[in-house]
């Protein structure tokens, strides 16, 4: 049975408790203290040491419209734990596994930092962690130091949401969902979450909210997302891909093209070398 998240952005108040709870539970370092001036978002994106990230989308009403028309969308992003996970397929060491909760988990002791999962995630989630921030015996290093100087990723490992594998094994709710005061992040059996989410969407639409689910029954090669979202604006507004594609689906074409070219060249070569002078 698959466990995952239903993140309902209409319930999010942007308190970032999820983001902090995640860093605290996983002892991840801060990513730097740079003021971004992009609304209230100063951590920008998911990454090797940021596994929950709250996005802030400001849509201010024009001055001639009522102030009440202003919108401020907030959305807590996380690894999607895809049914067909690009990162998992790409991983040459088998460090990335689908665990008993059907979540996509990186075994830190097996990852060798090849970095192939990084460009293989259609959602730009997973990234390498600099060795400075991960130290095999001690695990993540989190003294007030930040990893913004960590440009040197060689020898590091890949990091992303574990869906609190450790907590789940103890029967605990993932730290982020536990910390969420408004149940914007709902953890549970994905099928049950789907049912709840669909009801929720209907309820909202009945109230005139243009709500829809992202990561459920979208017919794409990535398949359903074990961490799916209820959104009220275009996916791109939240920095989610409108059309994610599972990278491995391109292998067949690639191999074929390579094989044909090689064959052609070999034949040509054979002919040339065998031809008279």
């Amino acid at each position: 049975m698959a466990n995952g998240f239903f993140t309902d952005t209409t319930l999010c108040i942007g308190c970032k408790a999820c983001e902090v709870a995640c860093k605290q539970w996983n002892q991840l370092p801060a990513d730097g203290y740079e003021f971004s001036a992009t609304s209230y978002d100063n951590t920008h994106e998911l990454g090797g040491t940021t596994w929950r990230h709250v996005a802030f989308v400001e849509q201010a009403a024009p001055l001639d419209a009522p102030a009440a028309d202003t919108k401020w969308l907030m959305m807590s992003d996380v690894c999607k734990h895809c049914t067909n996970a690009g990162c998992l397929e790409a991983c040459p060491t088998g460090a990335i596994i689908r665990n008993e909760f059907e979540d996509v988990f990186i075994q830190p002791d097996i990852c060798n930092g090849c970095g192939y999962c990084v460009p293989s995630c259609p959602f730009g989630v997973v990234d390498l962690i600099a060795p400075a921030d991960y130290d095999a015996p001690r695990g993540f290093v989190s003294d007030g130091r930040t990893n913004d100087d960590a440009t040197q990723h060689h020898g590091g490992i890949a990091g992303k949401c574990t869906l609190c594998y450790d907590r789940q094994k103890l029967g605990l709710t993932p730290a982020c969902a536990k910390a969420c005061p408004t149940e914007s992040i709902q953890f549970g059996n994905v099928d049950e979450l789907h049912a709840r989410a669909k009801e929720r969407v209907e309820a909202l639409q009945a109230r005139g909210v243009q709500a829809y689910l992202y990561g459920v029954d979208d017919n794409n090669t990535v398949g359903d997302l074990n961490a799916f979202f209820l959104l009220t604006d275009a996916p791109a507004a939240y920095n989610l891909p409108e059309r994610p594609v599972l990278p491995s689906t391109r292998q067949r074409a690639g191999y074929t093209a390579a094989a044909l070219t090689a064959a052609a060249l070999a034949l040509a070569g054979w002919a040339v070398l065998r031809s008279g002078d």
Binding site: T38, E45, G115, V118, P119, C121, F123, G124, V126, A237
Partner: peptide, 12 residues
């Protein structure tokens, strides 16, 4: 777009 920020991670 989200503040023109990258959506994907680049390979190292």
């Amino acid at each position: 777009t989200y503040y023109e920020q990258p959506l994907l991670k680049k390979p190292h």
